[in-house]
Design a protein around this nucleic acid. Structure first.
Lengths: 217, 217, 217, 217
DNA sequence: TATGAATGAGTCTTCATTCAT
DNA sequence: CATGAATGAAGACTCATTCAT
């Protein structure tokens, strides 16, 4: 067998046999697809398999059971978020700018990846037994990211210290979610909807909603 | 059939038969109870029947199917909210005060009726096919209530007119939900958690989060 | 409603609606039927349901799961055996006679109820997790019955006291089982096969197999 | 392919390739191991492969299907027994002595090879469709060995001729099995349990269980 | 109307077997 | 021959819904 043919046969292998993590990734994507269309409970293992172009049995070679697929989806999203937030913290930005960038990412993700985004907003209701305690839930993680920035702002004196960072984080995420949810049900192009939203959220948050002339309502 | 037995049977009927709307209400309450304990998907019709002290079959005399029970639950909640909001609008309060009062109601309900409250926050996930378009979703209604007050504030000049009322409503609801959700998972007494929250949310909303000395962050 | 019509309506109920224990008994019989034909592992819940003239779901109204059906079958058999043995002990028979009668019952049951009998002999292999320790296994119970008679014989001096009653019980049951098993695979009528077997087993057991003239082999 | 790589590949082959019967034997041993631990039905082909240090596919190069593995296991055991019995018959022992030696072998095997032993006792329950009629079942073979010795005893006059050798064989095997089964579930060391059992079984069998003084029970 | 036993379509999950490499 | 990922038929179990009483 010549060296060339050896290489060829390697290529052939590469084309047909996937390495395990690729397969797992395919299944994850298919699951995200189906779950965000149908919701977790109407999503059957058969449908995930079909969407992934596999047979049911194969799914069980990569995941213990149906719930583990969901756990894995969130695990991946958490890792992405952690990584982004770590980079964000390494950059020398003002807290306000950081809030903006974190929100921007939120909307960019929603744009690029409607499915994941829908799923992430919806997930609170899913009865996932197996997600162990030590693994932070995605929404808790997201909130803690915003909290962390706010606390930094308080520490540096820019942000009022009589605020509850957790509460304010809830406000930010709530505002963002309401926009994303709106984008699910509107015909308007998401681009249009998301344009300038981070900006507006942050501005309202920083300066309040009162008109400058009259500070009484 | 003897007279005696007739009387007896009347008494029996008197004891068991209720007027239809009472029965429906009993079933609704039982369903709220069970659903908020177990989540919609682990809630079986048998369990609802048991909680209502009825048999399964009876439920189907008052509701077409399981989903209709859920629709009805939200219908009732929407009616309550509409009624409250109507009264609120009739009162001569400032917009800021109205926002406070609407938030207060939110938390009072959460306190009094943890079950309904949990359910209302959770409902987005429920696969209710039959909720027809014309029936406004509870959360949409709630948002529109806040929006309406904000628009009033803008009209009267107290609130800045460069804000998106929908966005700000989302912020308020997001903040509120995050507190309520927190109360589900914490050992702290809900009274303690909810004390002064409306106040704090409104204050942050009105004046922003920047420290007064330094308006740059 | 007259008394007569009351009674009639009760009878009507009696004819159509079975009381729970009757249904359970029907399922038990169907299960015995199917299991002894196919073995426990090839017996599907569907087949049991079909044999019982019911649908799968109904079975699960009476049994927790498939294994519980098996547990129940043995529970019933153990109860029957206990009851028989209790009566046997109340009678004033010699130990030898008791052994005979217990064996006779064994074969009578095998005759009348081939299915149950096959199942009882086969059951050791079935992976029944749920049979709790305190519930004596049928075969252990049967052995303990024989043991008990033998110990009585030893106590009264008729039986040698240098024997291990457990071992001898094993001998008796082994002999009996081998005959019953043979009856499963032979064309000979079971009546013919079982005729006089108890007698022969007991005789061999009591006096041994050596020819009387020569006590050396 | 260069010469070097050829040599390497030959060495690899030399390390992994075994002659077919060795491989088959490895698989057989692994299967015995796994089956007697888990029972036939919880034994998967994957587990057998793992225990054999092979991959599933390989097993199917040596066996048609899963059941054939089981057939083969018993085939091997039957051959071993036949060989032993042939040697036993060639020796000039009294029938009583032969019974003793055959029983001794039974218990020695149980001692040495708990796994096989358990499997042999349990096998009646296994749903082996493919074991063809011409292949004698192990337990039938064992019984026929005992029968043959007993018939020799009858022929030579030492054993009473009014006995059914098949029945007596059943007694012996039943007694033996009950001891072996006991050893599976007891903490007592098997050595202790098996010590002198053959002796005791044969003695009881030869002379019966009646106390010598009193031949009535 | 109330009852609740019966129904059976629908799910998740397992595992013997195949086959491309 | 060895490999082991992929297959998909089969089975246990659930539960919304019906209907005879």
């Amino acid at each position: 067998m010549s060296e060339v043919s050896l290489i060829i046969s390697r290529e052939v292998i590469a084309l047909t046999k996937k390495n395990p993590s690729e397969r797992k990734e395919e299944i994850r994507k298919a699951a995200v697809q189906v779950i965000s269309n149908l919701g977790f409970h109407k999503t059957t293992t058969d449908k995930i398999a079909e969407a992934a172009g596999l047979s049911v049995g194969t799914i069980y070679n990569y995941f213990e059971d149906k719930e583990e697929i969901l756990s894995y989806i969130f695990e991946v999203e958490r890792e992405k978020l952690k990584s982004f937030f770590s980079d964000l913290n390494d950059s020398a930005q003002s807290p306000a700018k950081k809030l903006r960038l974190l929100l921007d990412r939120h909307f960019e993700m929603a744009l690029e990846n409607k499915k994941e985004s829908k799923l992430l907003i919806d997930h609170r209701q899913m009865p996932v037994r197996k997600v162990s305690v030590e693994i932070l839930d995605y929404s808790i993680l997201l909130k803690s990211c915003f909290q962390s920035i706010l606390e930094e702002g308080i520490a540096s004196g820019g942000v009022r210290d009589d605020l509850d960072p957790e509460l304010i984080s809830g406000m930010i995420i709530g505002a963002a979610d309401s926009v994303v949810v709106k984008s699910f049900f509107t015909d308007e192009s998401p681009d249009e909807i998301f344009k300038g939203v981070s900006e507006r959220i942050i501005r309202a948050l920083l300066h309040g909603i009162l008109s400058s002339k009259n500070q009484q309502v």
